[in-house]
């Protein structure tokens, strides 16, 4: 099994729901956004286009971050291909942050809270799960998968633009969409073979 995600750029309206769905699920600290949105604009008025591109960890089949990790903290799960960080092994060297071409990793250096007034009740409860001095990233919500749920970002997406499933199952929805709707990976030339695919915005 190889778990992956299809992000339909035609459905996506760039609302940032994924960024906050992820934030709400994981309670990450300021500046850490496992899921985020990139906005691009091109053309000349009035023939101009904008595009919102949601990004997250690509869960590469050939992940450079795992390769460069000196301690084995960055790993790829053999059973489903999820790339994750075992925080207890991470020494915070940040080699993985440098090696990731998709900007998907976040070093937890500053222990800031959001309001700069000391952690509020919510932050006290949620930040306990986030160690200082380590690198954090998307893990396709492993804790939710264990309970039979899909990742928070795809479960919430109000345009149903994120579809999660098994890339190795030819009958899965993700496989069908990639096959029939022209699915593509970001930066295929890097040879990382991402497990996140995109569907073109104009089709």
């Amino acid at each position: 099994m190889r778990l992956g995600m299809v992000i339909d750029l035609k459905r996506c309206i760039g609302c940032y729901g994924c960024q906050i769905a992820c934030k709400a699920e994981h309670g990450t600290r300021p500046g850490t956004t496992y899921a985020r949105v990139v906005k691009r604009e091109w053309g000349v008025y009035p023939n101009v286009k904008k595009l919102s591109i949601p990004v997250l960890c690509m869960h590469c089949a050939e992940p450079p971050c795992v390769e460069v990790c000196p301690t084995g903290a960055s790993q790829k799960r053999s059973e489903d291909g999820i790339v994750f960080v075992e925080s207890d092994f991470c020494v915070g060297c940040r080699a993985c942050v440098m090696s990731c071409p998709y900007g998907a990793r976040y070093f937890q250096d500053e222990q800031r809270d959001y309001f700069d007034t000391g952690e509020n009740e919510y932050e006290q409860a949620l930040y306990a799960a986030h160690q200082a001095g380590v690198v954090e990233k998307c893990d396709f919500c492993r804790h939710r998968l264990e309970q039979g749920q899909e990742p928070a970002c795809s479960a919430n997406c109000m345009c149903k633009a994120r579809i999660f499933g098994d890339l190795e199952d030819p009958n899965s929805e993700v496989s069908r969409l990639i096959r029939e709707e022209g699915g593509f990976q970001l930066n295929p030339e890097l040879g990382t073979d991402p497990s996140v695919y995109y569907l073109p915005p104009d089709r």
């Binding site: 699920e25 928070a152 109000m158």
Partner: peptide
């Protein structure tokens, strides 16, 4: 610790916008 869409409710059908998901920071502001 979390606010999310209620799948049982036809208003939103379990999917919520960024504002709704972020409401918890209004509670504990």
């Amino acid at each position: 610790v979390k606010v999310e869409g209620n799948p049982d409710n036809p208003i939103g059908r379990g999917r919520l916008c960024a504002r709704g998901l972020a409401g918890i920071q209004l509670l504990y502001d």
